[in-house]
Design a protein around this nucleic acid. Structure first.
Lengths: 181, 181, 181, 181
DNA sequence: TATGAATGAGGCTTCATTCAT
DNA sequence: AATGAATGAAGCCTCATTCAT
């Protein structure tokens, strides 16, 4: 945010970000397991050795990426839920924010999993306010996250209308699959 | 199945199976991306060169593994749903068979995804029979599979009662999260 | 010695020897510390990866080299001393065999040190037979080895007559530096 | 010695000394060959680039270290021999000064070798005065230095009494190993 | 067909050295 | 002058793959 930094510091921050961005891209394309440090460097304008001025391993980059995600994404992930007063608003806010973040920021399953506790807490809270049925919040949170991730993946791979997907998912979790009597 | 094969054939089948078993183990432990052909061989009593008499790449082994899964697991995965006459029976059969297969056969997300089309077809069928509400079958299938996989993973990692988990999942998808009026 | 080996075995032995020979040369030229595994490979007709089929580190090569030295050199190093009946014969045999081995086999300080115990035992034995004065055998052995190594090095570097050097060293240790009365 | 220097000069001298001290330590621990410039810098409070303001290579540092040794150690190494009037005094002074310097200053083989010429000159001188038998001074110097280094090393590694070691070495070189008639 | 050693490409990491600050 | 990050060469090691046996 603040650009009033000595030049060296600014370059360091920039290079660190180059590596994080490259890693995000590489991890998304090949998966964490298949990615190599060299792949990360190659996704960067930096020289091979420079990687090790910033991180000591692929794992450390992942950790930094997760931390970054936590800082920037988790707030956005939960923001819509805060003011939800009905279950429908809650679900709708949840799914649309996941779909949006996946599209714009390459949100991944691991990042979502990091939001598990937030979501569960919000669900428990909502259940106590009577907004939700008194279900096992952990199970519901897991179901919501898994479903959102899977559907977001499908949207990304196969295209589709985000609004419509949000509506479908919301409806499913709101009323279930039981046919109207 | 049939053991009346000439010796050569039998050994060939056995070696092929060694490789598949080794690969399944290695993929499960390290993930497909991080696994190497050497890792697979090492999980086997065979020599390095022998691998290439059966497969030409890691990818080909994965394909064979998927086919094997499809042959042996998919039937078991869908068997319970065939005779379901209510949505509740359908969901219950689905979740309990996934949880059981995960526990006994190390079923993985990819295997489940292979069951996607079956499940969607069954869902569409059921919807036409009026057993389910007329929802987007693709979205529902994705939600069910993702949820089942996630919950099965949690059961495997943290322990828990399979029957209870089945009941919770079934209830969630049957009636949704809306509180009773 | 035995050449009646299947071809594969023969090649393996040969390659192992390539590496040992390369390593001996490289260690002698640059010293053990400065030598790299790559240097060793380069002193060989083999490919880089082949090194690791035989050894896992530079250190392991050194150990093998030491073992080889012990097997082939130590007997030759001590052979002359066995039948020595006077101190003069003993010393003369010792120095001439060290000078000869250094010249023909690149004997090194470490190899000599491996002969320390042999030499000390022989010295103690000789002292008990009255061939030597009753001195501290360890100190004498250390002095003899260090002197022999140093003088052999000088001979190798600066040239000189082996026989004369043997005589000088023998005389020094036989009678000491005290002037005749 | 002189501290009346402008501040800049003083700091320069200090940094140079940091490098020399670090290098001495590193060379002693890993050997010259295995040591890297980075190792030297790391043994120093200085930054990487600073090294090159003082030296251009590891080799140059070694040269400086040798020069330093020559200046400070060689005088002490030969001081005892100056007033020796008998061979016994000469030898005793030589060995005890080597053992002492090794213990307190980490004297190394290379440093000793730097004392070779001094020692040979002293030996020749002494031989002309009739204190020593008329032996090849070069060979005797080599023998004395090699023995002293080896025994000093043993003392350092295995402990032992310096005075006793001095006596043993002196006796050996004074009278040789020949048994009394 | 099975074996396992050889190969050299390529990944990981550290190094010497430079140079903007 | 001191700093310390950037660079890319080069060392270490493992890998996929081939091929003689």
């Amino acid at each position: 945010m603040d650009n009033f930094l000595p030049k060296r510091q600014r370059i360091k921050q920039q290079n660190r970000q180059f590596i994080l961005d490259g890693a995000r891209k590489v991890f998304a394309e090949q998966g964490y397991g298949a990615a190599t440090v060299r792949d990360i460097i190659r996704a960067t304008p930096l020289a091979a050795g420079t990687f090790y001025n910033y991180f000591t391993s692929k794992e450390e980059v992942r950790a930094a990426l997760n931390a970054e995600m936590a800082d920037t994404l988790r707030p956005r992930l939960s923001e819509g839920r805060a003011q939800a007063v009905t279950a429908e608003e809650f679900l709708s806010a949840f799914f649309s924010s996941v779909f949006a973040l996946k599209a714009e920021a390459g949100l991944e399953a691991a990042d979502l999993r990091a939001g598990f506790e937030d979501l569960r807490a919000d669900l428990e809270n909502a259940a106590q306010r009577g907004v939700f049925a008194p279900l096992d919040a952990g199970a519901v949170a897991a179901a919501l996250l898994a479903t959102a991730d899977e559907m977001a993946g499908r949207l990304a791979r196969e295209g589709g209308d985000t609004a419509q997907a949000t509506a479908a998912a919301t409806s499913l979790f709101l009323r279930g699959v039981q046919p109207p009597l």
